[in-house]
């Protein structure tokens, strides 16, 4: 059980996306599509014929698989409902961030492969956002890792099971902003747009179609859910199972589901109430949250919690 918990991420991640979309539609006063719509989309895309530019090279064709595989790899390393398994494999959170980076690297390369301006634009902006987000994520991780005495996500999840400290609160807010940026949501990026001048993530995927697009999209959903899971593990691990007992896992699964839906709500509220920022206003937003992360570290040094 504990060794296949990553299956949850793989199969439920489109659902989370569907829930967020549905909630957003409701906030905007629309009925919206079904929460299972992402599944239908993926299935349709897998069956579809692909149009590939003849400018592209093997990077373009390999990238979707690499992105998908690296995200799955990350999913394997994260304790989803039980902390037991990840001791045996490598549950290190710094590794996790770098495994994500594999996907990011190849996605950005693939975007440049077709030789279009849109791909370059998306790739370039994605890199900018990731440069601003990465140090912030790392500082948040440091704060929690220092408090827990380990960079292993399972250990972090087990040790901070009870209460949030001031430093964790600050790190949590910083981390949430990082997630918004990393998953390409408003106010950083607009996931629904296909307007050339505003897109970041979609710009990179513009040349993709058929099963490649399906893999890329699916990996994106998985990454979103994974980041939620990391938040849950780092800041609200309450309810997570310590071992593989059936009853504990059932409780943990329920708790996990509630937490995921809660985070989906938070995301859709943020998306519905904020406007997208101009690209060059991002540094001030992300710089602000970097300051939060530094503050959380300072708090940890000063008051020790």
């Amino acid at each position: 059980m504990e060794n296949i918990q990553f299956i949850i991420i793989i199969f439920f991640s489109p659902l989370i996306q569907g829930i967020i979309k549905k909630l957003k539609a409701n906030f905007q006063g629309r009925v919206g599509s079904s929460i299972f719509q992402p599944y239908y989309d993926l299935m349709r895309l897998f069956k579809k014929e692909m149009v590939v530019s003849h400018v592209t090279s093997w990077i373009f064709r390999v990238a979707p698989y690499i992105v998908f595989v690296s995200t799955t790899m990350a999913a394997i390393m994260v304790p989803v409902i039980t902390t037991k398994s990840t001791y045996s494999i490598t549950g290190d959170i710094i590794v996790l961030i770098y495994v994500f980076a594999i996907g990011k690297f190849f996605m950005a390369l693939a975007a440049l492969d077709a030789g279009t301006a849109f791909g370059g634009e998306g790739s370039s902006r994605e890199m900018m956002v990731s440069i601003l987000v990465e140090p912030m994520i790392m500082l948040c991780i440091f704060t929690t890792a220092i408090a827990a005495g380990s960079t292993n996500l399972a250990v972090i999840a087990e040790q901070h099971n009870t209460i949030l400290t001031p430093s964790h609160m600050l790190a949590f807010f910083a981390f949430m902003i990082a997630i918004v940026a990393d998953t390409g949501r408003i106010p950083v990026d607009n996931p629904d747009t296909h307007l050339e001048l505003t897109m970041i993530h979609e710009g990179m995927l513009l040349e993709y179609s058929g099963r490649y697009l399906a893999l890329m999209e699916w990996a994106h959903y998985m990454k979103q859910m994974l980041l939620f899971t990391i938040v849950v593990d780092m800041f609200f691990p309450l309810g997570i199972a310590y071992n593989g007992g059936m009853s504990e896992i059932a409780v943990s699964f329920a708790a996990y589901g509630i937490k995921m839906i809660f985070l989906a709500c938070v995301m859709s509220i943020v998306e519905s109430t904020r406007a997208k920022l101009r690209v060059f206003e991002l540094p001030s937003l992300l710089g602000g949250s970097f300051a939060l992360a530094v503050l959380s570290l300072l708090t940890l040094i000063m008051i020790g919690r």
């Binding site: 770098y98 890199m127 140090p135």
Partner: peptide
């Protein structure tokens, strides 16, 4: 830890840099 953040920053920057180098000179 601040240097750790700096290291994370350089890591992300390195990715941007090498995406640029590889993407611009070998792809397209």
């Amino acid at each position: 830890p601040m240097s750790g953040a700096a290291l994370a920053f350089t890591g992300a920057m390195a990715i941007a840099c090498f995406v640029k180098v590889f993407g611009i000179s070998f792809l397209g």
